[in-house]
């Protein structure tokens, strides 16, 4: 049963207020007010001088469990919200693999589920390791992106992206944070530009994400009452108010404290929120928790996983 081994994250020190983006996106004072008051967005992380490699390096260098174990990493999987982030054939993930001694690893990117690609990467990492049958082998899920263009800076009427990265070591089996289930709903009908599909997408968002969460819980053989906390994607607070209402789960057990300080850190939110939950003592051994994400942007995916801590 797929299990997490260790998680580390890197967030650049600079926090940029969302007002900074108003001129670029033509946002009115009222729209900014709505983002702050209702969506509870505030600042986003930025590393103006840093590259994608710098973000990935930042997460990897904080992953203490990797040190001395590099030879055991068989797969480095880079889940990505945006399919294309550097000019072809540049390949930052392979470069950091060489830099960090991950020379036995196959590296590749998993994408086209937007911010849900992180959960897809975790699921397939476990399946590859299971097929190999080497109990010591590990996969490294390495998430993180730059907010390099308008599309990767703001989701209209929804969220702002923050820069950052996370690194998560995974084994086929293990004693802690065992994956119990995975559910994903792909809504490829939302294939148009965000502004074209925004209305229908917004009305489907909460129901679709709630359905994915409930499907993952059911697949794990559990009920909502069995879930201790939810680790969300940091899209905004109001979306999670709606989802928590639909699944009848208390909002104060959805880890949302980074929405206002980080913004939506692409596929890395789940791992950042996991670290917050563990550091804050919100998970005790045996607790079951949900990790959830939704990917929007010319195709929508809603996904959730259940883990046992």
């Amino acid at each position: 049963m797929t299990a997490l081994v260790a998680v580390a994250s890197y967030l650049p020190g600079e926090q940029v207020p969302i007002e900074t983006f108003a001129p670029k996106f033509g946002l009115t004072d009222m729209q900014i007010k709505v983002f702050r008051r209702y969506h509870k967005l505030g600042n986003v992380r930025r590393d103006p001088q840093g590259t994608l490699m710098d973000l990935l390096r930042g997460a990897l260098s904080r992953l203490d469990a990797l040190k001395g174990q590099e030879h055991l990493v068989r797969y480095v999987i880079h889940p990505r919200t945006f399919p294309v982030v550097v000019p072809f054939p540049m390949n930052p993930v392979h470069e950091v693999c060489q830099e960090f001694g991950l020379t036995n690893a196959e590296a590749f990117a998993i994408s086209h589920q937007a911010c849900s690609s992180g959960l897809q990467a975790l699921d397939l990492a476990g399946r590859l390791l299971s097929a190999d049958g080497d109990p010591d082998a590990m996969a490294l899920v390495l998430a993180g992106e730059k907010a390099f263009t308008g599309e990767s800076q703001m989701i209209p009427e929804t969220s702002f992206f923050g820069e950052g990265a996370s690194a998560c070591l995974v084994r086929d089996t293990g004693p802690r944070d065992r994956m119990l289930s995975y559910a994903a709903m792909l809504r490829g009908e939302f294939d148009g530009e965000l502004e074209e599909v925004a209305g229908e997408f917004q009305s489907a968002y909460a129901d679709s994400l709630a359905d994915a969460v409930l499907a993952a819980i059911a697949e794990a053989g559990l009920s909502v009452e069995d879930i201790r906390i939810v680790l969300p994607h940091n899209v905004n607070v109001v979306a999670w108010q709606r989802v928590s209402r639909r699944i009848k789960f208390p909002l104060d057990r959805v880890i949302l404290e980074h929405v206002a300080t980080n913004g939506h850190v692409f596929c890395a939110d789940a791992f950042i929120n996991y670290q917050t939950a563990v550091a804050g003592g919100m998970l005790t051994p045996g607790d079951r928790y949900v990790v959830a994400a939704a990917g929007a942007g010319r195709g929508a995916t809603f996904s959730a996983m259940v883990f046992e801590h």
Binding site: F82, P83, V84, A109, I110, S111, H112, Q113, A114, S117, Q120, L124, E151, A184, L186, R187, G188, E189, D191, G295, G297, R298, G299, A300, T301
Partner: peptide
């Protein structure tokens, strides 16, 4: 910027799990 695999899930019979 397009989640093409997700779009293909929509047009492919079976609405498969899809990724790139």
């Amino acid at each position: 910027g397009r989640a093409t695999a997700t779009y293909l899930s929509y047009v492919c019979p079976g609405n498969p799990l899809a990724f790139a």
